[in-house]
């Protein structure tokens, strides 16, 4: 479903050019669970942000569901992010003025046909991530692990085909990290959601079916559908 073709991203810092991604190409088939690893600064988060349409690559193509979506207008990006993908940030990125339930159903309001649908789905998702009893809590009242689970539930509200997670356990303790990773695995196995996640922890490879190792913006190794 995802095809990344010769993707490059160059940042300009004054007169210096930093090549964060350098001609990366690979496919992510439906239902896959792919981990992207690499050292700090290897370009893994940059790659995920291009895939999540949060940033535009300098060159190359991103093909989603057979359509090229590399540089769509802002409104089209919003639509694609709502309909096809969920994104989980390393720092949870919850809206502080909304409670857990509202954080989850906010993107759902943009698509859902009725009030009842997105509210019910949000509750079910929060139940699924083990937060059924914390729906009215605001982010400040939740632990880091709980906030990240709210973020995962939010990413799933519109039934995305793919979930992109950028170091979802980076700020969590071991127990919370395991709970998050098990949640992702369950989503992949039980709901068939394609998951692409970034991690600097080599141990996380055990959760994924395929892996991709980045080094200096290039694919250094991997056992996935490299092209």
């Amino acid at each position: 479903m995802y095809a990344i073709r010769n993707l490059s991203k160059i940042y300009r810092m004054g007169k210096v050019q930093v090549r964060a991604l350098d001609g990366v190409s690979f496919d992510v088939p439906d239902g896959d669970m792919l981990i992207i690893t690499g050292k700090s600064g290897s370009g893994k988060s940059t790659l995920l942000r291009q895939m999540g349409l949060l940033d535009s690559p300098t060159s190359g193509e991103i093909i989603l569901e057979g359509k090229e979506v590399t540089r769509p207008p802002e409104s089209e990006k919003s639509r694609l992010r709502l309909r096809y993908m969920g994104y989980v940030f390393q720092e949870y990125a919850l809206l502080m003025e909304l409670n857990a339930l509202q954080n989850v159903y906010l993107p759902g309001m943009m698509l859902s046909a009725s009030d009842g649908d997105y509210r019910r789905q949000s509750r079910e998702l929060l139940e699924m991530v083990g937060l059924g009893n914390r729906v009215k809590h605001f982010p400040k009242e939740l632990s880091g692990g709980e906030q990240q689970r709210v973020a995962i539930a939010r990413a799933l509200i519109n039934g995305p085909r793919v979930l992109l997670a950028d170091e979802p356990c980076a700020n969590l303790d071991t127990a919370s990290s395991e709970m998050i990773m098990e949640t992702l695995v369950r989503l992949n196995r039980e709901l068939g959601v394609t998951i692409v996640f970034v991690s600097h922890d080599q141990d996380d490879k055990k959760y994924a079916r395929h892996n991709l190792v980045l080094s200096d913006g290039k694919i250094a190794a991997g056992n996935g559908w490299l092209t």
Binding site: G52, L54, E74, S75, S78, R79, R81, L82, Y87, F89, A93, L94, L95, M96, E97, L106, P107, M110, R154, A155, N158
Partner: peptide, 15 residues
């Protein structure tokens, strides 16, 4: 940051 997050999760600029 909050506005950036809203955009990132698909809330349209119009909203």
């Amino acid at each position: 940051r909050q506005i950036g997050i809203q955009r990132a999760i698909g809330i349209t600029p119009v909203s």
